[in-house]
Amino acid sequence: MRTSTVEPGARAAALRDSGSVGLGLVPLGLAFGMLVTQSGVDWWYASLFTLAVYAGSFEFLLVGLVGALAPLGTVALTAFLVNIRHVFYALSFPLHRVEGRLARAYSTFALTDEAYALTTGEPARTWSGRRVLWLQAFLHLYWVGGATAGALLGSLIPAGVTGLEFALTALFTVLALDAVRDRRGDLPTPLLALLSALVGRLVAPDQMLLVAFALFTTALVARRVVTRRGRSADA
């Protein structure tokens, strides 16, 4: 490998860096793979999904969407709304350290929450582009490997065992709790979201996500306009 002549330790260091997150990615990947086979598609789709899309939480939703034969427009919109948060990672992810067009392309492709979290922390300030790239490749490998193993093992699970899809609910619950805690004192935001979701569920059960996201975004913009107007009226 050419890399080893450039920087001998980059791959080994990246392997060490990836350990903690890998401990979380492998079991989640296993659950994802099992869910894929439970939903009735061939096992290798678990490998394909995780290789080609590589967006953990969205992939769980994708299994549900394709299982319900959702229109491709709904798939695209859900991908957009669930992954829009990645737009803001570009503000601080160290892509400038990654060299080569292919390497940079892969680095943006594999810019997951976990990769972002690890490469923008304090200890990562001195990491070379190689080390960042290897880290991303290892995380990707854990996810694909976990999902593939889960899909293959999934067919061995007795027919009576169900309910694995709750892993996704639990994942979103954890992310929601963390996100709400980060916005301490901003109770209107989760409340507006909850209200939007319930209205979406009641009004349009088949297009719940679309209605809920649209309502929520509108509510946030409206709230901003109102508070701005209030502030300028005070002034």
């Binding site: 609910t169 619950t173 929601a176 909850l194 939007s196 569920r201 975004t217």
Partner: peptide, 28 residues
């Protein structure tokens, strides 16, 4: 993108709301 006040405003609030909506979606 960085210059847009509204985008920044939304970006700090969307994650919490989107996750709440996804939890409700899972339990629909």
């Amino acid at each position: 993108l960085r210059a847009s006040d509204t985008v920044r405003h939304l970006s700090t609030r969307m994650p919490a709301g989107v996750m709440v909506i996804l939890v409700v979606y899972c339990l629909r």
